[in-house]
């Protein structure tokens, strides 16, 4: 989980998968039937610069799975100049699933426990300087924050994706605050 608060040095190459992409697609279909490309466009709008990393085929793969699970039905619509397109529609089971998702209050937490234990262990085993670990981590988080903040600044003032980026920024800020507390705790400990 500590990965969630840092930016590793390797460049992302294989793109991300949205954990909740199924639920999102179902929810987007709740009002009216829609084409796959329309669904993808709406996702891209909501994610802004983060959508670049979203795997292009993921929406279609997921839709196919949903169809198999009986949560959506697909209807082929003929097109004159192109291959036929599918229009997806929500089933009753799918609707039920959407409602469950909306009511779900679970909140993915970047729990500090792992990093905390890492520091404790490092100090106990004499393996490393917890102060330095904190510093390194802080730089990583700071770099992430810088990236997110700049991305946020690049968004127009009322963009949907901007809201997401603000969320990222504020969380990283909270992580930084906590890391400061860690630094305060571990730095004098080191001196003793």
């Amino acid at each position: 989980m500590s990965q969630a608060v840092g930016v590793s040095s390797k460049e992302p190459s294989d793109g991300y998968q949205l954990r909740v992409v199924r639920e999102v697609l179902l929810a987007l279909l709740a009002k009216e039937a829609s084409h796959g490309y329309q669904l993808r466009a709406r996702l891209q709008l909501a994610l802004g610069p983060l959508a670049e990393a979203l795997n292009a085929g993921q929406v279609y793969v997921t839709l196919t799975r949903l169809e198999k699970a009986g949560l959506v039905t697909a209807e082929r619509v003929g097109q004159t100049d192109r291959p036929d397109r599918k229009v997806y529609e929500l089933t009753a089971a799918g609707r039920e699933r959407v409602m469950e998702w909306l009511d779900d209050t679970s909140w993915p937490k970047p729990a500090p426990a792992e990093f905390h234990l890492k520091l404790v262990a490092a100090a106990a085993a004499g393996l490393g300087d917890p102060g330095r670990l904190v510093d390194t981590q802080r730089h990583a988080v700071l770099a992430g924050l810088a990236a997110a903040q700049r991305a946020a600044l690049a968004e127009p003032a009322d963009s949907t994706a901007g809201l997401l980026l603000e969320g990222v920024v504020l969380r990283l800020q909270a992580d930084l605050h906590w890391l400061e507390a860690c630094a305060r705790y571990w730095t004098p400990r080191k001196d003793r």
Partner: peptide, 21 residues
């Protein structure tokens, strides 16, 4: 301490935002 921040790449923003690999 002193840190130089470079501008440009959005880095692993997706990961930070909770988009999982």
């Amino acid at each position: 301490e002193e840190t130089r921040l470079t501008h440009g790449s959005t880095g692993r923003l997706g990961e930070l935002a909770g988009l999982e690999g």
